[in-house]
Design a protein around this nucleic acid. Structure first.
Length: 652
DNA sequence: ATTAGGG
DNA sequence: CCCTAAT
């Protein structure tokens, strides 16, 4: 119903920028560009919208009504506007659709003629009974602005329709804006680079799906926050349990990143904006849109993040993406585009608390959803770890795109009857406190923390394509014990002995006892569950320990680790015989590799020589290890002789 | 409980 | 360091 309605009205309600008359080829190119850009800038649009929301919320946080009135038109031109203006040119919609679905739609542009537009205008508004398909066809025809053969039309229509269902009711604005914003992308990249990193928030992808996939970080950063709700099923509680909203709050990572820039405004912006967003979405939820775009899940999901939390990122982006000479109008334009997008995207059931309530199954709280989000389409899966893509590495430079930071896991404990708003605030406070306490960036490669700050990227292996994919960044509280990472893949960056004085009241380090709590935890939970049993802290062997070990092995041989332990490490509780055995193993390996490849505290070469000697000896005398004393004596003597390198001594 | 080896 | 199979 809604969709239909929209169709019938929407066409008329939107203004369509006049497409410059130009040679066919030129126009075609123009169109194409439009299409690409519209997709490319999806996130930019989001950013713009967010920025707008932020501004609005700041200026009118108290008087919500007034602000809403203002707000909506901008955001939902497509939906709201139609109610007012219903007599607009038809062509807009066409472009609209096309822009969203570029690849499919493009082909259709081949047969352009310039008059069709007018003829289209004259086309009477479709009857309510018109099917979407029909509508679409009409539109597409108009769009092609050609009176070509009727045969082609039907086909076009279908394509368009598909698009519409899947992606949406994208707004006209999104499409038409493109002409001028063709440049938008580049500036963004440049701007980011100046910061030392290239931030690629997917605006650069032409493929809609890729677009979503490129931002797994935004979506999947959920790891960071868990909401524990006990007990009953009060409305508020259930909301939380169902998670979507919670997850939103969780998807804080991205925001964190930006928060560095402007922490102060955060709170102000946060609350109001989210509220507004909820309303809009609520409205959307009542529509059928959300049903129509299952494939855009990822995409949609990313939306809420921005809308709800990430005003900053958007802002940021907007700035970067705007050319100096771009006019204010241009910016506004983008925002509007963005807003339209939001309608579409946000329509998924997983945004507002309300939606969570009403249709939890629509959300992405399920494992599958999470997985999808994390893995994305391009196979870039770094669910837990940061989400980066490798850009080109030229000039022996390593370029990284940090899609998000993973922040330490937080546990939030709030009363069941707490409002969603208070929960959000709590999360903000918690994160703010965390950030306020100072942060440091951690680096994870192949799931392991890279601790040695002095190693070069080359040495660390952060150069090759494969490795970079497994590279992640984390935000860690500075000198504060992060809560035990029950669902984090990496061990706590800081030893347990450190105390947490920084984590404020709202944050509680608790075990996720309830199923609900676990449910909110993103994917890694499962696989990492085993790691909940904390690993022993790593305690590298000192040179003296190595020496003691070598000495013991020289005497006792390999294979009698218990004896080695008793002999030389009896009082070292943290060294088990397995440890000693392992250490010996690594020592042998270390001794066999090039010095340049060795890591950690260097072991004196003479010790390594002894290791090799003993290793060589004992590997040839495994069979003799039975007569302890005798063998030991013999071994000792033999070793001594070996070291002397005196063949005659051996004979004697 | 140890040992040996792979992860 | 962890985990396991085999002693």
């Amino acid at each position: 119903m809604v969709l239909k309605k929209r169709q019938s009205h929407g066409f008329n309600s939107l203004h369509f920028p006049s497409v410059p008359k130009a040679p066919r080829s030129a126009r075609r190119a123009f169109r194409k560009r439009i299409v690409e850009d519209s997709q490319i800038c999806a996130f930019e649009l989001l950013a713009s919208l967010a920025g707008k929301l932020l501004q609005e919320s700041e200026s009118s946080s108290a008087s919500s009504n007034a602000s809403d009135a203002h707000d909506r038109p901008a955001i939902s031109d497509g939906v709201v506007k139609r109610e007012r203006v219903e007599t607009k040119p038809v062509k807009t919609e066409c472009l609209d659709l096309g822009s969203c679905e570029e690849s499919i739609f493009l082909p259709d542009y081949d047969s352009p003629s310039s008059d069709s537009r007018q003829s289209l205008k004259e086309i009477p508004p479709p009857a309510e009974s018109d099917s979407i398909l029909e509508r679409s066809s009409t539109v597409s025809n108009a769009d092609s602005s050609e009176k070509g053969n009727g045969d082609e039309k039907p086909i076009q229509c279908e394509k368009v329709l598909a698009k519409v269902e899947g992606v949406s009711p994208v707004s006209v604005e999104t499409c038409d804006a493109k002409p001028e914003s063709g440049l938008g992308r580049q500036p963004l990249a440049d701007g980011m680079e100046t910061r030392g990193l290239i931030l690629d928030n997917a605006c650069s992808s032409k493929d809609p799906m890729k677009l979503s996939a490129k931002n797994p970080a935004l979506v999947n950063s959920a790891n960071t926050v868990k909401v524990l709700s006990h007990g009953n099923s009060l409305p508020s509680a259930s909301d939380l349990k169902h998670g979507n909203d919670v997850k939103l709050g969780i998807r804080d990572d991205d925001e964190n990143f930006f928060r560095f820039n402007k922490l102060s405004n955060r709170r102000k912006a946060f609350k109001p904006s989210s509220r507004i967003g909820d309303r809009r979405i609520r409205k959307l939820l009542s529509s059928k849109y959300w049903k129509a775009a299952p494939k855009l899940k990822d995409y949609e999901l990313t939306k809420p993040l921005f809308a709800d939390l990430g005003m900053k990122p958007l802002h940021h982006k907007r700035k970067l993406s705007c050319n100096p000479d771009k006019t204010q109008g241009d910016i506004l334009y983008k925002r509007r585009k963005f807003s339209d997008r939001s309608l579409v995207i946000a329509s998924d059931g997983g945004f507002s608390s309300e939606s969570v309530c009403n249709s939890p199954e629509k959300g992405m709280s399920g494992d599958n959803g999470s997985a999808v989000l994390c893995n994305g389409e391009n196979g870039m899966s770094s669910p837990v770890i940061g989400h980066q893509a490798q850009l080109r590495s030229k000039d022996s430079h390593v370029k990284l795109s940090i899609k998000s930071f993973k922040i330490p896991e937080l546990f939030i404990d709030v009363p069941e009857n707490a409002t969603v708003g208070s929960l959000k605030r709590t999360v903000v406070e918690a994160v703010t406190a965390l950030l306020g306490g100072g942060l440091r960036v951690g680096l994870v490669l192949h799931g392991k923390k890279v601790r040695d700050d002095n190693r070069t990227l080359l040495q660390t292996g952060i150069t090759s394509t494969e490795n970079i994919e497994t590279l992640g960044f984390t935000l860690e509280p500075n000198s504060v014990q992060a809560p035990v990472p029950l669902c984090c893949e990496e061990p706590p960056a800081i030893l347990p002995c450190e105390t947490s004085h920084l984590i404020p009241r709202a944050l509680v380090a608790v075990e996720p006892a309830s199923a609900e709590a676990l449910a909110v935890v993103p994917l890694n939970q499962k696989s990492k569950r085993s790691e909940n049993v904390q690993r022993r802290t790593r305690r590298p062997f000192s040179v003296s320990e190595v020496e003691a070990l070598v000495e013991a092995v020289e005497e006792l041989g390999t294979g009698r680790w218990r004896d080695v332990k008793l002999r030389s490490f009896d009082n070292a509780d943290h060294r088990t015989y397995v440890d000693l055995k392992d250490k010996w193993k690594t020592l042998v390996h270390t001794a066999q590799i090039a010095p340049q490849q060795r890591r950690g505290e260097p072991v004196p070469q003479n010790l390594l020589d002894r290791v090799l000697a003993a290793h060589g000896y004992w590997s040839q005398h495994q069979a003799k290890q039975h007569n302890k004393n005798q063998v030991t004596a013999t071994a000792t003597a033999t070793l001594a002789m070996l070291q002397i390198t005196d063949g005659q001594a051996v004979e004697a």
